[in-house]
Write a protein that binds this DNA or RNA. Sequence first.
DNA 1: CCCATTTAGTTAAGGACTTAACTTTCCATG
DNA 2: CATGGAAAGTTAAGTCCTTAACTAAATGGG
Lengths: 148, 148
Amino acid sequence: MKNLQQYVLDLPLHTLVFFSLVETTAKLVEVSEKYWQSKGLNGARMRLLVEIMKEGGIILPSMLAAKIGVTKSNISLLLIPLESDGYIRREPHPKDGRKSVISITNEGQSLLLQYLPENRQGIAEKMQALEEHELHQLLALLTKLKRG
Amino acid sequence: MKNLQQYVLDLPLHTLVFFSLVETTAKLVEVSEKYWQSKGLNGARMRLLVEIMKEGGIILPSMLAAKIGVTKSNISLLLIPLESDGYIRREPHPKDGRKSVISITNEGQSLLLQYLPENRQGIAEKMQALEEHELHQLLALLTKLKRG
DNA sequence: CCCATTTAGTTAAGGACTTAACTTTCCATG
DNA sequence: CATGGAAAGTTAAGTCCTTAACTAAATGGG
């Protein structure tokens, strides 16, 4: 390698696309996070509520960990404030003493109803930089890329 | 809204693409991070070295913060181990007593030479899920999306 | 049917980043 | 040329997530 500065500056296409992915995604994620913050809410906890709702309102902590892709200890720590704020309920599993059953409360559902549409709208607005056919294209490329 | 579960499950295209972006990017970023970890190195500190190198090997901490998009206090904390490991040098600015001039050492440059190509190769392999024309397409879409 | 292993969940400690408060230095305006 | 405010950097405290260590409960192979 003759010139290190040149090397770090002359990015091959692969690397360029990778950095572009990282930057673009970070910018979009920020929009969503700032929205939750502006409402005094917590993005990670809201995502948890959404996942519980996707499962019909009842789920186990370990399932949440698997679905969201974080550790079970993180789920544990996220559930504590959700419970004390009354957004979820935690009950012992009737058949298996190791498990606990998480269910979303009416308050939790109200919270989603109140804020989730506006949150998604904020994201949608940013995504409208692309036409519908471009969104389809992008989705196809991302899917192919994720499969590997 | 009639049915909350239905609402959280039936994602409009915008939202679908957003989530796909987040997941795909996370998966690729993990490849890079795991590489650095496997070498006992730190991704954030390596990125800092790369940025310094991009500037020709000499830069101010505040510039690094602006270029990488993190806070100056974070830069401050990242520079401490880089300096004590001998990868950067910190000198007072000759003209402005508030500033300090960061320069990369020979050891820092050797570290980049030794590991950066392999790190980039790991990313490139994952990106090879896409053909060259697809990479160009993806880059164009991401650029348009980031502009907003 | 017993006990080693596995599974579920919690807690503690640590790492990475943020915001806020602070110090020092510079600068511009009176 | 003095001073109020801006700018650069550091440090402290807090948040969020991780890994590791732990407790309790279930399971299954001898």
